[in-house]
Simulated scan of single mutants.
Amino acid sequence: MVCALGAAVCFGTATVLQAVAARAAVADGGGGDAALLLRALRQWRYLAGLALDGLGFLLQIVALRSLPIYAVGAALAASLAVTAVVAARLLRVRLSGVEWAAVGVVCAGLALLGLASGAEGEREGPDWLRYAMVVTAVCVLLLGAAGGRLTGRARALLLGLGAGFGFGVVEVAVRLIDSLRPADLLTNPATYALLLGGGAAFLLLTSALQRGSVTTATAGIVIGETLGPAAVGVVWLGDRTREGLGWLAALGFAVAVAGALLLARFGEAPTAQEV
């Protein structure tokens, strides 16, 4: 759980640092996306954000090898609470009373999950599940192509859900990789599901945030990356709670996700002028 929470802190802080660097790059001059990216890469905040993203991913992998998927998914959704708090500090964004309450709700939900979560499931999952993850990753790409043709909130929601499903594929695929030997990785369909699902998720996430409602897109991501993977972990991978605490885990999961949804506008850290 410490690793899962550490990943949330890394991802949430990285969002704000990269947002600050990106806006500074825009202020330094015009140009296309490539020029803006090059200017952003020259700033320590952007590089620090990338480093935190990498560290967060490593911590996520460690957490997924030790905890049920439902606990890790809820903890990662809590990165929105981290983004909100850091944005209030660095960007001087004013959080409403409801949003401060939502931060507390997320923390309470994670505390309940920490008390109720058992160890990760011991099942390896059926063989077909690895191929199903590859198919799901391909479907995420198709969903992105379909969502790109829509407009408004429907577009943001569909692309956000697709990105969430892609991140969910990554969470499940990590659990389905049982050996890190190069030969085993190359012959395990879960390896390709992880790469394809992660790539598709970032592609859809970028598209959703560029031309759509950040709040709507982020809400879709939170739903997509928590509910489906949690169900897969419980049904096929043997994820369980501590004896007699299933109800507490379910309550903590629901509370943490609900709190994250209230903070969905921090999927891309806003400027103070936007609040």
Rank of each mutant, 00 (worst) to 15 (best):
L203M: 14
E243V: 08
I221Q: 09
A254Y: 01
E171Y: 15
G198A: 15
P182A: 04
A190I: 09
G233L: 12
T218P: 06
P270I: 07
L251R: 04
A173R: 04
A249V: 10
D184G: 05
R211S: 15
G220C: 09
A183S: 14
R265E: 01
W236D: 00
P270Q: 10
T216C: 02
G212V: 08
A219W: 00
T206N: 10
Q210A: 13
A201I: 02
L237Q: 00
T191C: 08
S179R: 14
D178P: 01
G228W: 13
V214D: 13
A250Y: 03
E268R: 11
E243S: 11
E225L: 15
G238F: 13
V222C: 05
A193S: 12
G199I: 05
G198L: 14
F202V: 08
T271A: 15
A193W: 10
R242V: 07
R175A: 02
I177Q: 02
G246I: 02
E225W: 12
E243L: 06
W236C: 01
A193R: 11
R242G: 08
L203Q: 09
A190P: 05
D184K: 05
L205F: 05
E274I: 09
G267P: 12
S179F: 08
T218Q: 14
D239Y: 13
A219C: 12
R181H: 11
A230H: 10
G246D: 08
P270H: 09
L205P: 02
S213R: 11
V235T: 13
L194R: 00
A264V: 03
L205W: 04
A193K: 12
Q273I: 02
L245C: 10
L262N: 09
T191M: 07
Y192A: 11
G259T: 02
G246P: 02
L196V: 13
G259V: 01
W247R: 02
A256G: 11
A249C: 12
R175P: 01
G199W: 03
D239M: 13
T271G: 15
A254T: 05
A269T: 15
L248I: 08
A250K: 00
L194C: 00
L196K: 03
G233A: 11
G197F: 05
E171A: 14
G198N: 15
L205V: 06
E274D: 14
L196W: 04
G259N: 03
G199R: 05
S213Q: 11
L263Q: 04
N188L: 12
V232N: 01
